[in-house]
């Protein structure tokens, strides 16, 4: 498996650390309530198909990136810096 780091280009999967669903970048407000926090930290869409997940280019440039991937085929459709992914959202 290879992932294209937005900074470094295509690299072997070994260089990256996988964290989980990209929802992790959308931290709720401290007072958002137990349900919201439970959803943030524990509950997952866990799609069989296209997903967005969060990887860290640990053995590379140390960028956290949001990768768009297919969980059925392992196809990697794209990757962007977490910062950029965040900026796109309202």
């Amino acid at each position: 498996m290879r992932i294209t780091c937005p900074i470094c280009g295509p690299r072997d999967r070994r260089e990256f650390y996988y964290q989980g669903a990209a929802v992790a970048i959308e931290r709720p407000a401290p007072d958002a309530g137990a349900e919201v926090w439970d959803d943030y930290l524990h509950n997952r869409d866990n799609p069989a198909g296209e997903t967005r997940d969060l990887w860290y280019h640990e053995s590379g440039c140390a960028a956290w990136i949001v990768v768009t991937r297919d969980t059925n085929t392992h196809e990697v459709m794209g990757a962007e810096l977490a910062d950029d992914a965040k900026a796109e959202r309202p």
């Binding site: 999967r13 070994r14 997940d53 991937r69 392992h74």
Partner: peptide, 11 residues
């Protein structure tokens, strides 16, 4: 990494 493919990779 999250997957439903029931197959893995070399690393």
């Amino acid at each position: 990494y999250a997957s439903y493919a029931a197959r893995g990779n070399l690393p």
